[in-house]
């Protein structure tokens, strides 16, 4: 059984839930089994937000992720809160613009300044898409082009300019964590 259990966390307003939803949607479009479970407490802008995504090729048991294969931490408090829930050989993806990746983690740590990259592209709010690009490229859980297609449909309905930036953000994220990813 091939199953990837993912925790995505950050502060409210960073688009954490959207990141998870697009990831889940991409998995669904690729014909995989998937669950998306948001934290639904008193999440507000500036507070904390997290969600859990499970992608599998078989029927999924628990949508609740106790032990994660992948942790995407978009800020420091989220990293501290969830790093203990990452499996020893799990992949840690850290937004180094807002969090200090733990020293001494030999394998599976990807540290990229998502927010800084997004700022350079023109919108700090696209940091979630940079992270999504990085997550897809470093874990192969879904294909980049599936996500890109979803963003395209999305942009058509809302803001075209923001859609452009999001596409660039996605690509920048994938390139930033795996040199050579752009050739795939």
């Amino acid at each position: 059984m091939n199953e990837t259990r993912i925790i995505i966390a950050g502060y409210g307003g960073q688009g954490i839930l959207l990141l998870g939803k697009i990831l889940a949607q991409a998995a669904m479009q690729e014909g995989k089994r998937v669950t998306f479970l948001p934290a639904y407490g008193a999440e507000v802008r500036g507070g904390t937000a997290n969600c859990m995504v499970v992608v599998s090729d078989e029927e999924i048991g628990s949508p609740f992720v106790e032990q994660a294969d992948v942790l995407v931490a978009m800020n420091e408090p989220s990293l501290r809160r969830f790093e203990g829930r990452l499996k020893p050989r799990g992949v840690m993806i850290v937004n180094s613009s807002l969090a200090q990746p733990p020293a001494g983690r030999a394998t599976g740590a990807v540290s990229v300044p998502f927010t800084d990259i997004a700022l350079k592209l023109g919108n700090a709010r696209s940091a979630n898409m940079v992270a999504l690009g990085c997550c897809a490229a470093s874990t192969q859980v879904v294909a980049l082009k599936t996500i890109s297609r979803i963003l395209q449909d999305f942009a058509g309905k809302t803001n075209k300019q923001l859609g452009e930036i999001n596409q660039q953000a996605l690509l920048a994220g994938s390139k930033a964590c795996t040199p050579g990813a752009s050739q795939r």
Binding site: M28, R33, V34, T35, F36, L37, P38, Y40, P63
Partner: peptide, 9 residues
């Protein structure tokens, strides 16, 4: 609450 909040295809 978990069933209500979770999304699945």
């Amino acid at each position: 609450g978990m069933l209500g909040q979770m999304m699945e295809p």
